[in-house]
Write a protein that binds this DNA or RNA. Structure first.
Length: 367
DNA sequence: AAGACGTGGGA
DNA sequence: TTCCCAAGTCT
């Protein structure tokens, strides 16, 4: 029996975490490290906001180059707000969750039009921006404005569920995890605390095989004490992904121009450039080819898996005359066509079509 | 309020 | 190959 409770309180946990962060903070282009921070350097709210939008459901590794290109091209919120929609969507292509890019522009324009080009300096103010939810608002408020807001992302959920041995499965456990995370948020250095929690989750308290031997919070961790660290957080089982099918029409004009269309704002790949195609509900779909031509089956299927379904698209190609008049989409001159401006699914379609055009089958060569 | 919404990398 | 997942938000 102990006559004193030796389990550390929340302040001790955060203090220990910050000591670890001072030594191990990862370097990121949008981050002001703990040392620079102490020297008085402040992060630019625009860069923090942009990075946090990009980081939603997306790995740091995937974000790095996109962040660099965006900030080189649009160094501040005024520049971004003034950018044409198509330029921003093309620059976002490949990063996924394209509603983020549409909301990014709306958000930038709101900051300029409604807030004189200054980001709202509080969590509640930030929440009013499109694309900014509870996570992003708390992240920007704490990192850029020193507000002691509690940041809860997937990393924090994992760290907290282990630290307090929360056995309730996600997403039901979310409110409790948020409440527990809030008990750890310090008044001083809340932004570094938030980033430390996320770094810890990303490097030590990882989903599989957490490296407890290197964890600064191991003495405090109930999950580890119970031998449950690898089991937590528990999660509700996921639904099976259905397979959907459809067809893609890729037309190349004699002068090299390619037939593309801008997809509707709503729905999959909303607002992005893509090849005309059928619906993905059933093979063949109701929609006809975007123009009359000698459509050739490539015999190659594009396979792509989204968050909630698998997709298989049959690719058809046609080489058409310069006078061809499409019923859907418009021809983009070859010099202006960059596959990189397409979402990944559509890039795959282009790879198939380009190969089919370069290497027609024997039969077609004879024809 | 449950489902829609991308992608690439690792096991 | 297949599955899981990563710094969520919107409707």
């Amino acid at each position: 029996m102990r006559d004193t409770d030796e389990s550390p309180d929340a302040g001790d946990i955060s203090a220990r975490l910050l000591v670890w962060y001072d030594r191990h903070a990862r370097v990121m282009p949008w981050r002001v490290g703990p040392a620079e921070r102490r020297a008085g350097q402040r992060p630019d709210p625009y860069r923090v906001w942009l990075s946090e939008i990009m980081l939603q459901q997306t790995t740091v590794a995937a974000v790095r180059d996109y962040f660099r290109r965006f900030t080189e091209r649009w160094p501040d919120v005024e520049a971004l707000a003034a950018a044409p929609d198509a330029d921003v969507m093309a620059e976002w292509a490949g990063l996924g969750y394209y509603a983020r890019a549409r909301n990014l522009l709306k958000g930038a324009r709101a900051v300029v039009a409604l807030h004189g080009g200054r980001f709202p300096g509080t969590r509640d103010g930030l929440l009013s921006l499109p694309g900014v939810g509870p996570y992003t608002a708390a992240a920007v408020a704490s990192i850029a404005f020193d507000e002691p807001a509690t940041v809860v992302d997937g990393n924090v959920e994992r760290v907290v569920s282990r630290l307090f041995a929360v056995e309730t499965p996600l997403p039901a456990a979310k409110p409790e995890l948020t409440r527990l995370a809030a008990t750890l948020t310090p008044q001083e250095r809340p932004g570094d605390h938030a980033q430390a929690m996320m770094d810890l989750g990303a490097t030590i308290c990882t989903p599989r095989k957490p490296v407890c031997s290197l964890c600064p919070l191991r003495p405090d961790c109930e999950g580890h004490r119970a031998g449950l660290e690898a089991e937590l957080p528990r999660k509700a089982p996921k639904a099976e992904k259905p397979v959907r099918e459809g067809r893609l029409w890729i037309a190349v004009r004699a002068d090299g121009a390619v037939l593309l269309e801008t997809r509707p704002e709503r729905g999959m790949l909303g607002g992005m450039l893509g090849w005309p195609g059928t619906d993905w509900d059933r093979s063949g779909g109701p929609a006809g080819a975007p123009l009359e031509a000698d459509w050739r089956e490539t015999g190659v299927e594009v396979r792509h898996t989204f968050t909630h379904f698998h997709l298989r698209l049959e690719v058809l190609v046609a080489q058409v005359a310069e006078a061809a008049l499409p019923a859907r989409g418009s021809f983009v001159p070859r010099a202006d066509f960059r596959p990189a401006a397409l979402p990944t699914l559509m890039r795959k379609g282009w790879s198939v079509a380009a190969a089919a055009i370069r290497h027609p089958t024997g039969e077609e060569r004879l024809a």
